[in-house]
Design a binder for these strands. Sequence first.
DNA 1: TAATAACCGAGACGGTACGTCAAGTCTTCGG
DNA 2: CCGAAGACTTGACGTACCGTCTCGGTTATTA
Lengths: 200, 200, 200, 200
Amino acid sequence: MAGGQVKRAERGPGRPREERVTGAVLSAVLDLVTEQGMEAVTMDAVAARAGVSKPAIYRRWPGKHDLMIAAAETRIGVLTVPDLGDFRAELRAVLDARVEVYRMPGTARLLAGLIAAAEEGGEVRGAYQSYAARIMSETRKILERGKARGDVRADVDVRAAATLVAAPMIFRLVIEQQLPDEGFAADLADMIARAVGAPA
Amino acid sequence: MAGGQVKRAERGPGRPREERVTGAVLSAVLDLVTEQGMEAVTMDAVAARAGVSKPAIYRRWPGKHDLMIAAAETRIGVLTVPDLGDFRAELRAVLDARVEVYRMPGTARLLAGLIAAAEEGGEVRGAYQSYAARIMSETRKILERGKARGDVRADVDVRAAATLVAAPMIFRLVIEQQLPDEGFAADLADMIARAVGAPA
Amino acid sequence: MAGGQVKRAERGPGRPREERVTGAVLSAVLDLVTEQGMEAVTMDAVAARAGVSKPAIYRRWPGKHDLMIAAAETRIGVLTVPDLGDFRAELRAVLDARVEVYRMPGTARLLAGLIAAAEEGGEVRGAYQSYAARIMSETRKILERGKARGDVRADVDVRAAATLVAAPMIFRLVIEQQLPDEGFAADLADMIARAVGAPA
Amino acid sequence: MAGGQVKRAERGPGRPREERVTGAVLSAVLDLVTEQGMEAVTMDAVAARAGVSKPAIYRRWPGKHDLMIAAAETRIGVLTVPDLGDFRAELRAVLDARVEVYRMPGTARLLAGLIAAAEEGGEVRGAYQSYAARIMSETRKILERGKARGDVRADVDVRAAATLVAAPMIFRLVIEQQLPDEGFAADLADMIARAVGAPA
DNA sequence: TAATAACCGAGACGGTACGTCAAGTCTTCGG
DNA sequence: CCGAAGACTTGACGTACCGTCTCGGTTATTA
């Protein structure tokens, strides 16, 4: 019996929000960006595609940029790599996982739109930064595990190293505008292992 | 006597374009983005700031995105590093030069706007890609010089390595939204030297 | 009980249009044309004067010409002359009524703008023609009443005669660019009465 | 030999104007208005059609409106009716001549454009009014001849009567937007003859 | 059971930027 | 000085999108 009423108090009076709407909107954003690019992601277009009204969207997210970030999170979410006992293996796992996500159609456009959105002032910036931090957190963990384990050099700065790991893949996609592949992941793994790995 | 007029006027009939306009517009874009951010870079605002009419702008660039790319080129132009006889030194020169440019106010915003602009189809994309390629060309040259010299490993892929060099700085600025500094450049130089440098 | 809800809301879904906007726009057009002439009737100026946004105007009328016709209708509307039992008296009533309207400041400019607008193809033309027909309908009625009554000659063509009545006043205003006055109306009444009236 | 140098002094220094240009421009205006309507009569379009530069046009006419009036004059010029010894016959001659001109393609559009142009302030207005007066002068002459001859009533106001003659045809064309035909001219002649003719 | 409060779709609203077009002026070259 | 060609400013045009607000109506919780 205990805890039975925990959830009930969370809801005030009035009609509750329909979960269907939230999901439909996020899907609509991803669909539109994938099929037609960022230019097509209009609030009206999203509403029409999701079969939802504009106020219903604005009740959930304060603006377009916030919606973009939320949509990006469903695509490029947090990544978890288990302790494999070896830095090199875990590094490769992270890179391969990213290749897979970045090769999905629409990811490049989504990322570009996200970057543009982040240039805003205000609360959007905070949300974006926390999202960016979350994206890199797993890489950081791997580096710290490696340091503790001893197969990552003790003198590397984890923050700089994490940037070195995360940056090239996204750069190739967004700046060079080409899809990263497994060969690229392998090359990166080799180079980064030499860069931060403890000498044999 | 022959050849006296080799460089004859390359100009067709009619009034030639005023150079003053082209320069004023590009400056206006940079000023606006620096002082007020990408949102303030309105075609009307640019025209007003440059003391120029809108049609004069559209005669030179077909759309806003093209203008953005042109403006970015004047800020983040091609970089030249002379042969210093040592890969490590040249690497550090490239990274330091980039730190300097990226720390200038407005560069982050300009870059973000540029990335968003590049998501367009059509000619804008081509212009952007050629620009991106130009940005990385010097890094490539350094790597190739190093390979020839023997202080860069023979087995590294130049393209992948160039991405490894160029990406982290821009990533820190645009994704992590922090100004890169000399310490970061030094950390990167250390790591990249280990990644691609020939073993002692 | 039946029929209780005959006049149920004829309104579709969504926020209804505000009547205030429609009225304010039409007034703004008339004010501007009266005070500053047709050249001042800019969509932006109308919007500003009416305290309304441009899209709100374009939602109601597809273009500037349509707006002009609508504004003209509120100024030079349909005219009604009751049966006075005598053609001559009714003719004079029509002419005097027109003198009054045409002497209002801005009517000449409005009419000239209207004529220019009518030269368009498409729907504008239809709207204009139906408006022109409405303007002449009362004149036609008077002529037909006179014919039935016997104080208008049986052999006159009503259409041609209606043109003879309506044309001179507007011609004097727009072509000769002078304000018609009561003396002119009296002269016309005399002549037209001889032209179409039944001989004593 | 006398008079040999009369014309030479009329010309200042420099290259004389080519007559070809003046004619080509006026023709281009009429062609454009006939084929595509007033909207197509752009200064650039006229220049292109005439194979002439814009400055060459502006050297001859101070503005677009003046050019329009000049073009209208070449189409709807001054009309001359000889003394036929009978008011009724001369009236019919005037009306038939107008029918012929007004039925030419493009005349309606030209007239509408002219009316719109006249709503300008400044010098254009004067030019337009003198043109309008010229258009009506022949009608006036006929009425005065008739009065002198005795087959026009002595008590009619010539100005008002001239308006009565000139207005209906142009009204049918521009306001009712229909081509006047000979039947209409005949109806008008009958009515106007009764309106101003001396009783048998 | 009734009231209340928050939800829902639909769509108009103000504001602001976009990219285009026309008028009239000015500048270059050549005849 | 005339001519063609074309760039220049000014200012209006009509469209698109954003974020808000107002409808009529629905659905849940509270009184």
